[in-house]
Design a protein around this nucleic acid. Structure first.
Lengths: 230, 230
DNA sequence: CTGCATCCGCAGGGATACTG
DNA sequence: CAGTATCCCTGCGGATGCAG
């Protein structure tokens, strides 16, 4: 007889993905993998190095980052590349389709920011803050906020440019800006989203703002109202 | 002395969520839970019963469905309710914030449908097909497709109404329609997305179409082009 | 019919240490 | 700096049984 195993019937592989014809769940099969979303987020503003990714994604370990970069490359979201000389360092960059996920970050940001359980005061990376701001401002009464803001977050420069309905984000220092704001991402978030005068003033103390201060204030007003909605 | 365990240092709970200030990752903390997205999807067109949810979500088991319904209720996405008499049956329905995730399905659908790895021919529920179609049609050259279509999928009636930029979906039979299409969701998907004449003809054989046939053909043409993009 | 509780096997996740 | 190797543990998935 040698009855193999009565209790263990032949098991199916039991993939942890959805594998449906539904386009939304298929998207989730990709971005729903652990750490996939933060990785894509950190690449949305341009190519980055392995170590920089690891440092700006809070809590990820090297082996998991390796795994995720591998599966996202296999899925066509990103690719490995080497920066042109004299840099010649290996980086990861989004493919064209990977970049097309930007509206997805907008939609997720808009929905997530309105979550009853969302606490905007938790730490977040520079890219995370920029994309969150981008998602929260669109459609708001931010009409008179055309122009460029220079943001220095964690010591790195970024440019925020509102051009009509469009918000353009980029790494690097802009040529011209109406106001320049420097500080840690979570401090800036505390200032923009802070409820109560004291919280905002406390945050403002840790920021350095130069240029058109009135413009900065109107910028901040856009987010104070938007964070409490539902 | 009594050295407890040298190899096992005090472990942190190691939550599998992101828990950041970033709004997008916070959204993922909710919809990224296993089966959360299909559950929300099946509720987007109105309240449903436990058993119906279980039947239309392929591969989920009762205990997991219970778990997910519980965590989504705790998260404010959905609530338990009882249908008014004489039905008086327990159902699950989305909260206002839960319904606000509809644009998220649009964004995910648009991105997922363009995935190089997406196979639209896999089985999918009626709701999944309707939301996938909704996400794929918007912005397309579907201007002359105003009006209502009656869709009978898996024996249940739905209405698809295009009103300007807006696509409205609902369960139930519409009062008036330009064309009525009946069949299984994956067969209809095969007809709409099918590449090659034969595939479309084979699918068409298994569908029953009544009313304005020309309208139905123009409707189908919207999706054949959209599915191959990147 | 509508769920909830429990047991078990397994794959993926997380921390740490290590190699090129 | 850029990953790989190892080990442990949790959560998922499936089956089953039970209560209202």
């Amino acid at each position: 007889m040698t009855s193999e195993k009565l209790t263990t019937a032949p098991r199916k592989p039991a993939s942890r993905r959805y594998d449906e014809g539904c386009a939304a769940t298929h998207a989730m099969d990709i971005i729903g993998q652990r750490w996939a979303l933060p990785v894509m987020r950190e690449l949305m503003l341009g190519p980055r190095r392995f170590g920089d990714l690891k440092n700006s994604i809070n809590g990820i370990s090297a082996n998991l980052l390796t795994q995720r970069l591998g599966s996202l490359e296999a899925g066509g979201v990103l690719r490995r590349a080497t920066l042109p000389p004299p840099a010649s360092v290996p980086v990861y960059e989004l493919t064209r389709w990977g970049h097309a996920a930007l509206p997805l970050f907008d939609a997720m940001g808009q929905w997530g920011a309105r979550s009853p359980g969302h606490d905007h005061r938790r730490p977040l990376s520079a890219t995370a803050l920029l994309l969150t701001l981008r998602s929260m401002i669109d459609g708001a009464a931010a009409a008179p906020l055309e122009g460029t803001i220079r943001l220095t977050l964690d010591g790195e420069d970024f440019s925020w440019t509102k051009d009509g309905e469009d918000i353009r984000l980029a790494r690097g220092t802009p040529d011209r800006w109406r106001v320049s704001i420097a500080g840690a991402p979570d401090v800036l978030a505390g200032w923009l989203f802070g409820e109560g005068e004291e919280a905002m003033l406390a945050a403002a103390d840790q920021l350095s703002v130069e240029g058109d201060l009135d413009f900065a204030m109107r910028f901040a007003d856009c987010f104070g109202a938007a964070s409490s909605d539902f």
